[in-house]
Design a protein around this nucleic acid. Structure first.
Lengths: 200, 200, 200, 200
DNA sequence: AGTTAAGCGAGACGGTACGTCGTGTCTTGTG
DNA sequence: CACAAGACACGACGTACCGTCTCGCTTAACT
């Protein structure tokens, strides 16, 4: 994280006004909902938040840094299930994920950030960190399944993550096909059930 | 398709100069290679192609429409393998895909187009069409496998496509992990081998 | 004049269509009336006249050449009075001039041409010729008055023309004050009546 | 005038940088001298002044507004003579005027502004104001002469102004004949001397 | 009658300038 | 120092005309 809230430093001068942070993030989220990331401008956010542009740039180095922070405010923790079985855990995890995606249905923030990350290493890092943190429960869940023997030891769990999350992201970003419980079940069936795709 | 091959229409006025199309597309691809989609400007393309901006806008309604056309010119056909086995076909298909991705390694065109598609329905449609055409061999290959009985009839092939392509795209766009033969084998192992992930 | 209507030359090929000239000039005058010279474009004239742009440029070398021609079509001859007295002649001449100005009240063609003449020598010459032809009756009228002795022989008639026409043009172009019979009488009073301004 | 010298208002935000005004006006005058008003572009002025285009548009709504301001900076006051006689005053006034015209000999600024004033009311007003201020000394000078009885009380001084200034402007804009001391003397002779043009 | 040269409508072409918008930085006066 | 306001350099946008050029066709005059 960039914010090192070292409490002992006690910086001099007027302290930052926490209400500014709030107002800026709220304005950002509102404008994201209305026009999407592409139509969101710092000028616009500043105007709506009733804040000077410098006040924004003092806190975030770029539009994308701001977006990432705004996204992170949605921090009701991700489900970290432990039902005892791999299938059960995955269903809980994905049901949560589906619900999240359903809520901000047409959000284009992710595509925007992905593109921005191509040009800006700092954004790249922050985005990686953000995504990684979102995946943590899934990795842990798989780890436990492998320890229980539900997943063969030889399997590379990183690839399993790809196989599970990839299809969802793919639908989200590219095909825009429906992402719901039905899709998740089909996905899990294919990945988990040997009878689905069997080698000749 | 927009091409109405009605030869009897006999369009009036000076016809479009095909050399302009070439020059513009060539300039576009060059600048894509150099600076990426984000740093590509219509002004720049026009200047490099030795062409007025209007000549570009006469053909493409936006930067993204131009990018899509430029991408489509890369028309060495995608591998449409038929080795007789699902596994064999998939390996051939993905080896081809991996090679393509390897070539324009750090291209940010796809992220850029994905974002643009969020705001512009026309781009959305063109992009869908483009992606769909790239997937065609894969869909056909799976179709044949299902007819041969290698894939259970109850399986939704659309989801299989997601499960296969999704992980690759996911690495490409989000985790930026390595995409190579090793990854593809692991991926196919997980998806095709029942012994990998087995339900309790 | 540019048009050398040598009838014996008998140029080969398809002859120019006189209806085009008409249509173009009519369209030009209409658009002049609507938007003024500044808002008149060759594209617009061509479209309204139902004519290709080349058909216009084949006849006139520039927008201004076209304007000059369009102006010259208004060729109901200028009054060339001969009432026997200087004052009488001048009143007739200026009444005619005032009427002409009144008709195309807010025309901005003259300013436009004056400016264009600054940059284009051809326009300069055509404009000079046009203006000179309009002044001819006045010069003749003054010439006769000088021969009759109404104007002292030592007087430079060119300057008299300036003194008479200048004020009208000045009002027209710069002050935009009213130009009517009252003004003309006042003008003639000042210039012709010794009791008006008398040297101490 | 637009300048509201209210010092108590204490305008907020970063104040306009006076050096920008200077640089822009200087660049404008330079480019006027080089290419004339017709070849002067906002892009060009911005580039030469080392200033963004927005910085120009923030101050002036159009090219013409800028030109008017630039002209007004040439503020070595106009001669406001008081020699005691009408003839003497006029000679002083016109000698000054002739000298000014001689300096920027081929300037096309005036024609350009006159045309622009046809389309833009704001330019119209500014131009009127500018011209009116230039005429002020002449009007005062005539006023005094009328009070002294050198000009008959019944004479409309506004028309006298036209009669005096009109011929000069007319030469300047239309005939492009020479404007010098000789011309001015001839002009004054005709207007002031009863023996020149006498009514029958 | 066939050939040829130009006229014609349509519209593409290389340019140039336009006026607007957004970025990230800066400079004021006021807390 | 932080803050609101807003000026600043820069760069891209998409549009409008300019004057020229190519198409396929028509229209006469000259072979």
């Amino acid at each position: 994280m960039t914010t090192t809230t070292a409490p002992t430093v006690a910086r001099r001068g007027r302290p930052r006004d926490a209400r500014c942070d709030e107002a800026i993030l709220r304005a950002t989220l509102e404008m994201l909902g209305e026009g999407g990331a592409g139509n969101l401008s710092i000028d616009g956010v500043a105007a709506r938040a009733g804040v000077g542009k410098a006040t924004i740039y003092r806190r975030w180095s770029s539009k994308e840094a701001l977006l990432l922070e705004a996204l992170s405010t949605d921090t009701n923790a991700i489900a970290s299930p432990d039902s005892g079985t791999l299938r059960g855990d995955l269903e809980l995890y994905f049901d949560d994920l589906v619900e999240r995606l359903r809520q901000n249905q047409n959000s284009d923030v992710l595509p925007h950030l992905i593109e921005a990350a191509c040009y800006d290493a700092e954004v790249r890092n922050s985005l990686d960190e953000y995504l990684s943190s979102r995946q943590l429960p899934l990795r842990q869940l798989l780890q436990r399944a492998q320890e229980r023997g539900e997943i063969a030891a030889r399997i590379d769990l990183a690839v399993v993550v790809d196989v599970l999350v990839g299809p969802v992201i793919y639908r989200r970003l590219m095909t825009r096909d429906r992402i719901d419980g039905v899709f998740v079940r089909k996905l899990l069936d294919i990945v988990l059930t040997p009878a689905g795709l069997r080698p000749v």
